[in-house]
Amino acid sequence: MSITEILFWFLTALALLSALMVVFSKNPVHSVLWLIAVFFAISGHYIILNAQFLAIVNLIVYAGAIMVLFLFVIMLMNLNAETEPQKNRWLWWAGTIAGGSLMLVIIAALKNTENQMAQIKGGDIGLIQNLGKVLFNDYVLPFEISSVLFLSAMVGAVVIGKKD
């Protein structure tokens, strides 16, 4: 077992465990922290797949900006574990079983597919240089339009969150 594989399994285990902890944590702040752990694990996977740019962006945007936003909101509202009494056990089981069966069904559907290899080390399409070329050659218009999206989201967030 090579070092890459060890790393792969480690990151996988970390992602799954952290994801479960996101769901089962009583305290929302803990959930946020576990989610950050998930994002780190996923970024690690990106690095293994030699998608360095995405790994960094993932960390900056998700783990950095978005989760901080979440934390801010949680702290603003002063939420803690007692605010969410889980009364309906039936709904809890139903949700768990539904989610589990969704996973089982999809896995069962895909387990017999032709097994191809994803290139892990090597391959340089994930480098900033190459992605930048493609982005600014072929996708420059969507990229610019996404700035308009951001602007409108910003305005929207301000309008919605305004106190009146």
Binding site: L91, A94, G95, A98, G99, S101, L102, V105, I106, A108, A109
Partner: peptide, 21 residues
């Protein structure tokens, strides 16, 4: 909202099952 999503998921599962199997 929760129950609606639950129904949606269940329906999705059912559709998957029908579609695939």
């Amino acid at each position: 909202v929760g129950s609606y999503i639950l129904i949606m998921v269940v329906a999705t599962v059912v559709f998957f099952i029908i579609q695939i199997f």
